[in-house]
Amino acid sequence: MGISLTKQQTISLEKGGAGLTRVFLGLGWDVAKAGGLRGLFGGGGGSIDLDASCVVFTDVGEHVETVYFGHLTGQSGAIRHGGDNLTGAGDGDDERIFVDLSRLPAKARTLIFTVNSFRGQTFDKVANAFARVVDEVSGQEIARLNLSEQGSHTGLVMVKLVRNGSTWSLTALGDRLNGRTAAELVPALSRYL
Score class of each variant (00 low, 15 high):
Gly28Val: 06
Arg80Cys: 07
Gly42Tyr: 07
Ile97Gln: 04
Thr21Gly: 12
Ser76Met: 04
Gly70Thr: 15
Gly46Asp: 06
Val67Ala: 01
Gly43Arg: 08
Gly92Arg: 12
Thr21Trp: 00
Leu25Lys: 00
Gly19Lys: 09
Arg22Leu: 08
Gly16Phe: 04
Gly39Thr: 03
Leu37Glu: 06
Gly70Tyr: 08
Gly77Ile: 03
Gly77Glu: 01
Phe41Glu: 05
Asp30Glu: 13
Ser47Ile: 00
Leu27Asp: 05
Gly83Cys: 05
Gly83Tyr: 04
Asp94Asn: 15
Asp51Pro: 06
Ala32Leu: 12
Gly45His: 06
Gly26Cys: 07
Ile97Asp: 06
Val64Glu: 10
Gly36Pro: 06
Ser76Phe: 10
Val55Asn: 14
Asp84Met: 05
Gly44Trp: 08
Ser53Lys: 03
Leu50Cys: 07
Asp84His: 03
Gly35Phe: 00
Thr58Asn: 12
Gly70Asn: 15
Ala32Glu: 13
Phe24Ser: 02
Asp49His: 07
Gly44His: 09
Ile48Asn: 14
Lys15Ile: 02
Asp59Glu: 14
Asp51Thr: 11
Leu27Thr: 09
Trp29Gln: 14
Val64Asp: 05
Asp51Phe: 00
Gly70Ser: 14
Thr66Lys: 01
Gly92His: 13
Gly70Leu: 15
Val55Trp: 00
Thr58Ala: 11
Gly61Pro: 14
Leu40Thr: 01
Ile48Glu: 10
Phe69Val: 11
Arg80His: 03
Arg38Ile: 03
Val56Ala: 15
Arg96Tyr: 00
Phe57Ser: 10
Asp30Ile: 00
